[in-house]
């Protein structure tokens, strides 16, 4: 056997081995993909809120959530939080909007906050374990798949910082102290909003998520349940009427978005407390849909 034939033989064996390895690897990948597809299709994973994830899945999800929040919180500039007036205002927002899911010192969460997975955290605990920037980010942006909504179309950044300031104070309040403060804090109407003069369609697109528009309408450019409760909004910029009752122009669209039941008392579209600026931005986005 010459050296050359031996080399050729070795080369051939090497190629064959590599081929087998590649085929085997492909087979394993395909089997894994098939397994994952079937896992989803046959509904293997129990989505019941009372069937908690297994410990490893829970840890993985919690780690992903913590990392996601802390990475994004790095971009947040934290203002001074020490002024008493801030936490006074924050207390009112907290009492009126947070207690139903999170509870407060000595105050039970309402029923809506009980059977949830993940369970809405006790915020006195959160205030002790999270940075102000992380808390601010979570309130402003909300957290997917947890039940925590984004509050940025309901509260201004300043109001969210008020809530953060109060939460930090709350972490050292006794139940008696909290309840006395909450009972004395008077509800105050929301401060007049500051309207910008220009409309921002991209912000309007985000606002359509913020006001849950996609729960009822199909909107091009937004991912959602594609529900046909109301009409699809494709081509809305070219539509001649709004809701079949108003000529489609910018002023009328803003009016309709803010007070649909005043425009048509029979409509199933509810008043969602859309601010003027948000309505302008949403109208600007809808106008782009030709």
């Amino acid at each position: 056997m010459t050296i050359r034939t031996r080399q050729r033989l070795i080369e051939r064996i090497r190629k064959r081995l590599l081929m087998r390895l590649a085929v085997g690897l492909m087979g394993v990948l395909l089997a894994m993909a098939a397994g994952a597809t079937m896992f989803v299709f046959w509904g293997v994973y129990n989505v019941s809120a009372l069937q908690q994830h297994t410990e490893p899945v829970y840890s993985l999800l919690t780690t992903a959530l913590d990392r996601s929040i802390s990475q994004r919180a790095r971009e947040v500039d934290v203002p001074p939080l020490e002024q008493p007036s801030m936490s006074e205002r924050g207390l009112r927002h907290y009492r009126d909007n947070c207690v139903q899911c999170h509870g407060a010192p000595g105050v039970a969460r309402h029923d809506v906050g009980k059977g949830m997975t993940p369970v809405p955290p006790n915020l006195a605990h959160t205030a002790r374990n999270r940075t102000p920037a992380e808390i601010f980010w979570s309130i402003k942006h909300g957290i997917k798949m947890t039940g925590m909504p984004s509050w940025q179309f309901i509260f201004s950044d300043e109001e969210i910082w008020d809530i953060v300031a109060f939460m930090r104070q709350m972490a050292s309040l006794s139940p008696t102290e909290y309840q006395a403060m909450a009972a004395n804090a008077n509800g105050k109407p929301k401060e007049a909003e500051v309207s910008r003069s220009f409309a921002n369609p991209e912000r309007g697109r985000l606002a359509m998520y913020g006001y849950a528009c996609i729960a009822c309408h199909r909107v091009p450019g937004l991912v959602g349940p594609q529900a046909d409760v109301g009409p699809p909004l494709a081509g809305m910029g070219a539509r001649r009427y709004i809701a079949g009752v108003l000529a489609n122009n910018n002023d009328n669209m803003v009016r309709w978005l803010r007070h649909p039941t005043q425009v048509d008392p029979l409509t199933a579209m509810p008043d969602l407390d859309v601010t003027e600026q948000d309505a302008k931005d949403i109208a600007a986005y809808l106008e782009t849909l030709k």
Binding site: D228, G230, P231, R240, Y241, G244, D264, M269
Partner: peptide
């Protein structure tokens, strides 16, 4: 109205009637 499979039905005065069988409300009311 836009009405699927009806030739020339492509008006933009009222809403599209695509998937109208699945719509929860008629005329929003």
């Amino acid at each position: 109205h836009i009405i699927p499979d009806v030739p020339g039905a492509n008006g933009h005065t009222g809403p599209t009637l695509e998937r109208i069988a699945k719509r929860t409300y008629l005329a929003g009311v």
